[in-house]
Amino acid sequence: MSSSTVSVSAATPTRHPFQRKIDDVKPSKTDINFVIMDYLVSEGYPRAAEKFAKEANIQLPLEEESIQCRVEIRQAIHVGDIDTAITKINDLNPQILDTDPALHFALLRLQLIELIRACTSSATSDITPALNFASSQLAPRAATNLDFLKDLELTMSLLIFLPATSTLQKELTDLLDPCLRRNVASKVNEAILTSMGARGEARMRSLVRLRHWAESKARAAGKDIPPALPLGLQDADERPSDSNGNNGAAADIMVQ
């Protein structure tokens, strides 16, 4: 309706024809709220999900049992407490790690990284626990899989370089980056969801990827689209502070 076009036309003086096509799309709030709820539940934000169900007047999906468990597992992985995470995953469903050796290996490697990190953080530390863990837990698995072996070798080389993190090559810093834990945690989450028969990946993620894919495809095909398709994320963060203050004050006076 009129509302959606106003702000856009103000921002772009000469409107690209594609802009009109964008504005013609009227996404339904119900769909968007569904995507949000889907994300909150499947990625494990139980409190937000609960509030959202109330505020948006929508039903909370019936996955309550696993959500708390999944949150705990995620937290354990995030803080590097892989032992606890593996125990909890096995409590939930021992099949998950049995049927997904790559996931199991990724978790164990994460544990090894934490051990290495712990024993190299101070000069006096002993690296034996890390070595023992590597040879007892990871080596047997790596023996049968080339990818695993490569990963293990790379991880072990951390022992040589740490704690001098400044000179590390990128491959090694990636191992120490919290992102790795986040990725593994999210893979574990997906595996749990899939094991319950739910859709593994949150729709929000597919949607974000669809946009990337569609944009690069469209550009590759030489479609007539504007050079940039801004979402207004930054925009929304900056602008309100100005107009907001004025309006808020004015509204206050009105009320009184």
Partner: peptide, 30 residues
């Protein structure tokens, strides 16, 4: 809610809605 936002000088649609709009338009184009 959208009308109020517009009256406040904010965009009537959130970035996520924009993303859906753009995606849908791009897919249509494809």
């Amino acid at each position: 809610n959208s009308a109020i936002l517009v009256s406040l000088g904010k965009s009537s649609s959130a970035a996520l809605e924009r993303l859906v709009q753009i995606t849908e338009a791009l897919v249509t184009e494809l």
